[in-house]
Design a binder for these strands. Sequence first.
DNA 1: ATTGCAAAAGTAAACGTTTACAAAGCCCAC
DNA 2: GTGGGCTTTGTAAACGTTTACTTTTGCAAT
Lengths: 355, 355
Amino acid sequence: MAATIKDVARRAKVSVASVSRLVNGTGNVRPKSAERIRRAIEELGFRPNAVGRSLKMASTRAIGVVVPSISNPVFADALAGINEEIRAAGYNLMLTVTDYDAANEASAVGALMGHQVDGLILTVADPDDCASLDMLERAGVPYVLVYNQPGGKSRATISVDNVAAGGEVARTLAAFGHRSLGMISGSFEASDRARARQAGFVDETVASGLHAPVICEVDFIDGDIEQVIAGLYRSDGKTPTALFCSNDLLAISVIGALRRCNLKVPEDVSVIGFDGISAGTHLSPTLTTVVQPSREMGRLAASQLLGHLNGQEAPHTTLLPHHLRLGESAGQAPQPVPADLQDNSQPVQKRNLAR
Amino acid sequence: MAATIKDVARRAKVSVASVSRLVNGTGNVRPKSAERIRRAIEELGFRPNAVGRSLKMASTRAIGVVVPSISNPVFADALAGINEEIRAAGYNLMLTVTDYDAANEASAVGALMGHQVDGLILTVADPDDCASLDMLERAGVPYVLVYNQPGGKSRATISVDNVAAGGEVARTLAAFGHRSLGMISGSFEASDRARARQAGFVDETVASGLHAPVICEVDFIDGDIEQVIAGLYRSDGKTPTALFCSNDLLAISVIGALRRCNLKVPEDVSVIGFDGISAGTHLSPTLTTVVQPSREMGRLAASQLLGHLNGQEAPHTTLLPHHLRLGESAGQAPQPVPADLQDNSQPVQKRNLAR
DNA sequence: ATTGCAAAAGTAAACGTTTACAAAGCCCAC
DNA sequence: GTGGGCTTTGTAAACGTTTACTTTTGCAAT
């Protein structure tokens, strides 16, 4: 049905080679023939078949992208950056979203490799133990991670310093006078970011002279979160006056849950998120959060990858600067209950309600 | 570098045909050879090259998706639905986001056609006058629109009834006692949805016995919106006590702008959005909005397209049900200023600040 | 042992490109 | 008009598959 280069050649009375040369601007063709070819292309509505070309050229000019979610603006923003950069370079984007499922992750990477993408940009659950990355490595397919922060293996990645950022949150809350901190985190298994943020947060909490924070790992279901919050604040012991949430979406849910538990943010409890999604600035109270330059991270990942494909240096791990955006959701610690000021030291509790 | 079917054949001492037959489960192969082939595949890490296959099969098993934005959750959600459906069917997704730029739209569709995607799902600026859709039509590439609502030409599309929904918003506000309505809309040129919603809104406003609403078309820049709001409420005349925004993102910005102009939502001004993005329920005040089943719309678009590719009936226009989600951002009209009750009839004003 | 037949295996062409190489054409200087 | 050199053109072989068609094989019945 669709016209091929042969059809064009026949109609223009030249060889396919000449058509190819004209179309790709490689090699000269006499003006007279060029004109005939152009007309034939026009008349036939010829459009070069990228599949044929890819086969011969061993390059599809397509980049694979694998992210856990697209409804989380943090990934959507990075993707916007990737799209921008990649399209400017004339590449195409093959996207897969895994829904935080490791099996999907592997099959997605497999499919993308099968489609012969020239490189991949991905956020995986655990970059230190990841079948798909090993596959890529073995096959020699270039890739860059975004958001991930591998500990052991050296893998090119674009991220912020999650540990340092977690630490800053702890110090900020301590400076606000909070003495009892907590962290509500998404699945540690599905997110090395959450682990890193927690590590930094815990370390700096302790370094600030406070006892270790309560850590709650939650599923991403609103009811579930509400239960955790209710449980946390029903207990008689020393309950946290400030909560660090491993990401903004979670922080927003937590604020909702707190409100439904009749706790005021930030009067009773301060909440700090992570990511800096733009919705946070429209909330009331506005969200205090660690801002990552998501779109820029996507752009950078793409440009490093594309650069590498064009013979420049291989992608290398880059930590972009983050910053704490102060909003209304975090503030001074509430006045301590006068009756009981001394520290009735309570052990760290770890509640795990994830699956 | 990567092993091909020939390498496998050689190593397993069979012909490429047998390998192909085994891999695709088409045709029989003796258990003994099958075993040898499987081992060869394993040892070589062979993975069929989809480009070669696509060339021969004239099908890439890839679906192209073109959306104006990915940072708007409404598109992200639809995309999530598309991804889900498409991956379950073993297809891949080629994504382009156009940033609401018609030139990008055309080039994206061109690139996708060049890559020989089997079909496309897209949201375009104007489905009634769209070069890219005409191209697809001419080339016979199957496609489905999402969110668009073509007026003239018959084009398969999945959407809600934007006109009816706009009308409901008008009636709802009238029922709340509002007598002077306004609409803040994104670019009409870049969104047929906005036009349809406006049409329904205006018609029903008038049908409810009110005079025609003020219509403001705005650029998507926060400062710009603030200026429009300030301008609107600085004027001495009868200013709207309720604003319909053509989408939720815009509504959120408008609420922010109103707040900065010292107008209370909903006490002074009611605001209703469109889309039903989940962030709306976490806002304060929670957003009153027309909810579209975005994810389901994506799923449906994908399943109709895939069905068609597998020989079932062609995609057909489907209107999915929407509903008005009542939030706190819209409520009873404020008590009219007692001094001046009569209608000092003011003409419809149209402010256009878009580019 | 032959024969017949079904099942398995192999051969080679095709899909739409690009490009090395060879051939031809053009132009100019002599 | 001939030769030389440069530009333009054409031919054909890849790239990695699938599959129609042909050939071989295995096996059972005679």
